[in-house]
Structure formats: C-alpha cells, structure tokens
Write a protein that binds this DNA or RNA. Structure first.
Lengths: 139, 139
DNA sequence: CTAACGTTGGCATGGTGACGCAAGTATTCC
DNA sequence: GGAATACTTGCGTCACCATGCCAACGTTAG
C-alpha cells in the first residue's frame, strides 16, 4: 500500500480540473509579480534591502556600497532594480541619490498575496469528477 | 528646492548606519529565502502554481502539462523546482506523481516575512548621527 | 574655470536557468 | 514476455543577468 500523504476530506466542492483552473483567472493571478519576486530572489539584493529596512532612513548609494564587498556600480544597479520593483523609493538631491526601503508597501503586497492564496481555501481533494483519483479513487 | 519625498519624523530612535545595519542580523534575514523567491519569479511557474492552488486537489504531471503550451518535460521540471522550494507536496503512486499546492505553507511564509518587515518599524529618518542628512539635515 | 565628488552607463565575461527534443527509466496492462 | 503509459534526465541552445572595470556625466566646492 502506498503511504497516504494526501488526505481527502469529504469533497464537498468538486474542485475544477487543472485545465479549467488554468484558464479561470483569480485575484491571485494578478498578484504574482515576477519583477518583485525576481528582485527578491538575489541574495545580495535582499541583503541590501534588509540593510535599508533596518536603517529606517534614506541612505546614499555610497553609504550602502560601503557595507558590503560588492562593486560600487553593482550596488547602484541593485538599488535601481529594487526601486523599479517598488521595493525602494529614491530621491535625487544634488549629486547624491537617497534610497529608502518601502517596507510598508512590501509587507502589504506580501499580505495581499497571502490573503489571495488563503481565499482559495485549503486543498482537500475532490476527484469525484473522475479525472484524477490519487488515492484509490473509484474511477 | 528639491521635492521632499522623504518625510522625517522626530527621529526618536537614531537608526543605525548602513554598516551597522548590514551586520546586525534580524529575524528578517533568516526569512528571505532565495530559493522560494526564485521559484516564484518565473511566470510559467506561478501559472502552474496558481493552477494547482485553484484546483485544490492533487494533480498528475500529465494533467498539469495538458493545461499549457509548455513542453511536458519543462512542466515536470517546474513542478520539481516548486516542490523543492516547499511550494508543492508530491507523492508518487505507481507510475504517476501527484502534486498538490501547499497554499497554507506559502501564505504563512509570506505573512512571516511581512511580520518581520513590519517589526522593524516604518522608515522615518534619523541622521542625528551625522552620517547622512538627506533633506536639509542640520549636520 | 577646474577639480573633486557621487552616480550612471557601456563593455566584456562568466554563470545560471528556461526551453525543447530525445533517450532512458519505472510501472502497469495485456 | 512485450507494449503502452508516466515521468525523469541528458544535451544543446539561447537569453538573461550578476559581476567588475572603466569611462562619462552632472553637481558642488574652491
């Protein structure tokens, strides 16, 4: 017998087939932001973001670049990338550019995504539609 | 005059320099998961994830691959990637592999990240330390 | 005006990953 | 046993991107 990992509840709602689900647009689909996730996918970038979040104040590129071993131009580029993704706000003042982490914006985006996921309800099996009986389905 | 984007509050707490902030490890630093974010950074992958979340039941690779124009092997690889990142749970049953989205795990991770960000408090300027007066600081 | 400063942009390089194809493996059915 | 099914894996290609170096640009100070 196979170890039954996937628990099935009473299958109150059928649950769509993957094809139906794939086409049906949900709030979730609009909330997945590749640009945002890409910006958060690079360890050096998240280090810089974390640094700015902990600073809780605007910092210049020079200041931030002094923290890590990265090349200065790379730090500038990372900050640009994150600003474009909505993670940082920036303000140019003379020859200095100040970057500040927009923690509120990020956390609210993350919560919105979490809400949209929870909104779909827990996966609980269905398969009375007969398309995919994972664990001893009748079909 | 420069447009004053960065509002400064009373600077109740100094706020560390970027160098201090960079070294000081916070809960946040442990929550940034590059693997997770990378898994969420690819549009095709998030489409598949969304599909599985909406299905609310385990689906086989074949089923999922039938939804989109992607090559079968690519779908299988994407599902593996997401399973490794903790987004999906999978169970092999005979020659079929069932994948189910772990929505609860994802949303709780996102909320934990949001909590850790909010925990740091809003950025509000400081700079009485004299290291970075962004907008007409006294230093 | 000149020099110094802070940042941006071009360039070459190396690594990573998405993609499709095709071959291979494991399991089930006849 | 053999064939069909369901998936995995290897390979080659291509695009993107992180990285560092260096030149150029705009701004400020002298």
């Amino acid at each position: 017998m196979v170890t039954q990992v996937f628990q099935r509840s009473g299958a109150a709602e059928p649950g769509p087939t993957p094809k139906q689900a794939y086409r049906r647009r949900a709030r979730l689909d609009r909330l997945f932001d590749p640009e945002l996730m890409k910006a958060l996918a690079e360890p050096n970038r998240t280090s810089l973001l974390s640094c700015l979040l902990k600073c809780r104040r605007p910092c210049s590129v020079t200041e931030v670049a002094a923290c890590c071993a990265l090349d200065f131009s790379m730090v500038a580029r990372h900050l640009q990338t994150m600003a474009k993704a909505g993670l940082l706000r920036c303000e140019k003042q003379g020859r200095t550019v100040w970057y500040a982490a927009d923690g509120a914006a990020l956390s609210s985006k993350l919560r919105a995504l979490a809400d949209a996921i929870d909104e779909l309800g827990p996966e609980d099996g269905c398969c009375d539609a007969g398309s995919c009986p994972p664990t001893g389905g009748s079909a």
